[in-house]
Simulated scan of single mutants.
Amino acid sequence: MHKEISHYLVEWIRDRVAEANARGCVLGISGGVDSAVVAALCAKACPGKVLGIHMPCYSLPQDTDDARLVAKSLNIDYIEVELNDVFDCMMGVLKDARQTNKMRELEQRVVPTAHSERLASSNIKPRLRMIVLYYFANLYNYLVVGTGNRSELEVGYFTKYGDG
């Protein structure tokens, strides 16, 4: 049964790439199981035409090691794009924007909660990753392949316009 599902998914990816007149696939490789499975399916669907991108942003070094291992074992093209500085810059710009008179007036009427502050900043990382993925997809005429994971499906959560 697993072989049937795998074959179906490989064909589905191959068909989507062909329909988009794309030359291959680009995907984020986190170092986790879900992105490794998607990378393996893409490698079968588009041999020699897969770019895996690891985009750490204050991530664990083990994640980078695992991402490298996945790319090497699948023999796919692989790069790393470090996002710490971009994230810090974006947070600084947003913090500065919140210090303007207009925003201070707004925040007197609508006070952000600790939860909304965490949610707002946590969604920046997947959106930065999305920018990187689509940059390289457009550059090489590749199709972005999402790597959403089971826990996101179970709870019904993902970042809209993120890297899923």
Rank of each mutant, 00 (worst) to 15 (best):
K72L: 11
T159Y: 05
E4H: 08
G92P: 07
D63P: 06
S121E: 11
V33S: 08
L128A: 03
G31V: 08
S73I: 04
R16S: 04
N75P: 03
S122E: 13
N75E: 14
F136W: 12
F136G: 07
D66R: 02
V70Y: 00
V50G: 11
V33E: 07
V86C: 12
H115W: 12
A137C: 10
L41H: 07
K160F: 00
H7V: 06
P56F: 01
I5P: 03
A43C: 10
Q62E: 01
D96Q: 15
V33Q: 07
N138E: 14
L133F: 01
D66V: 01
C25M: 07
V86K: 08
T113K: 02
T147D: 04
I53D: 08
I53S: 04
P61G: 01
R150F: 06
R118E: 14
V111M: 07
G162T: 10
D88P: 06
M1C: 07
T113D: 02
A114S: 12
L51D: 11
Y135H: 15
L60I: 05
H2Y: 13
L60E: 13
N84E: 09
G28T: 09
C25K: 03
T100D: 05
G28N: 01
I124P: 08
I5A: 09
A40D: 12
D88K: 10
A36S: 15
L51P: 06
Y8D: 13
K44N: 00
K95W: 04
G28L: 00
V132E: 13
L153F: 08
I131H: 08
R68Q: 15
S116D: 14
V86R: 12
R118K: 15
L27K: 00
G24I: 04
D88T: 11
K49A: 15
A43Y: 05
K72S: 13
L27D: 01
V10W: 00
K44A: 00
S73C: 03
G164E: 15
